Simulated scan of single mutants.
Amino acid sequence: VAAQSVPKIVLKCTTKVSLNEDFINMLKNKQPMPVNIHSGYDAAKQQQQQPLSTARNRRLAQKVEKRSSVQATLKLKQIGIA
C-alpha cells in the first residue's frame, strides 16, 4: 500500500503583536469583577453551606489517613526518619 501524501498546511501570521504582548494587553484591559455591597449579609446561607463542606473535608481526610502509603509516612515521621 502506497503512502498517501498529506498536503502541507502553512499558517501565515495575521498579527504583528507577539503572544506575550497580546496577553499583557488583555490583562491590562481586563474588567474588574462586579462586587455586590449590601448591608443584608446572608450569614445564615453561609452557615448552611459550611457544615456540608466541612463534613466532606472530614470524610476526605479520614479516607486519606487510611491509605497504606500515608500510614507508612506517618510512622516514619513518628520515629524521626521523615
Rank of each mutant, 00 (worst) to 15 (best):
V1K: 11
A3I: 10
S5R: 15
S5E: 15
V6Y: 06
P7Y: 02
P7W: 01
P7E: 10
K8V: 14
K8C: 06
L11K: 08
L11T: 07
K12L: 09
C13P: 05
T14C: 04
T14G: 07
T15G: 10
V17T: 12
S18Q: 00
L19Q: 11
L19K: 12
E21I: 00
E21L: 03
D22N: 11
F23W: 12
F23G: 00
N25R: 12
M26R: 05
M26E: 14
L27H: 12
K28T: 01
N29Q: 13
Q31N: 09
M33Q: 09
M33S: 06
V35M: 03
N36R: 12
I37K: 05
H38A: 04
H38F: 06
S39R: 11
G40V: 05
Y41S: 07
D42P: 00
A43V: 09
A43N: 06
A43W: 07
A43H: 06
A44Y: 01
A44L: 01
Q47F: 12
Q47P: 00
Q48C: 02
Q49S: 11
Q50A: 12
P51G: 02
P51D: 04
S53Q: 15
T54F: 10
R56M: 04
R56W: 08
N57G: 03
L60C: 01
A61G: 04
R67Y: 15
S68W: 13
S68M: 13
S69T: 14
V70M: 02
V70S: 01
T73L: 15
T73N: 15
L76E: 04
K77W: 09
K77V: 05
Q78T: 09
I79Y: 14
I79G: 02
I79H: 12
I79Q: 14
I79A: 04
I81R: 14
A82E: 15
A82N: 15
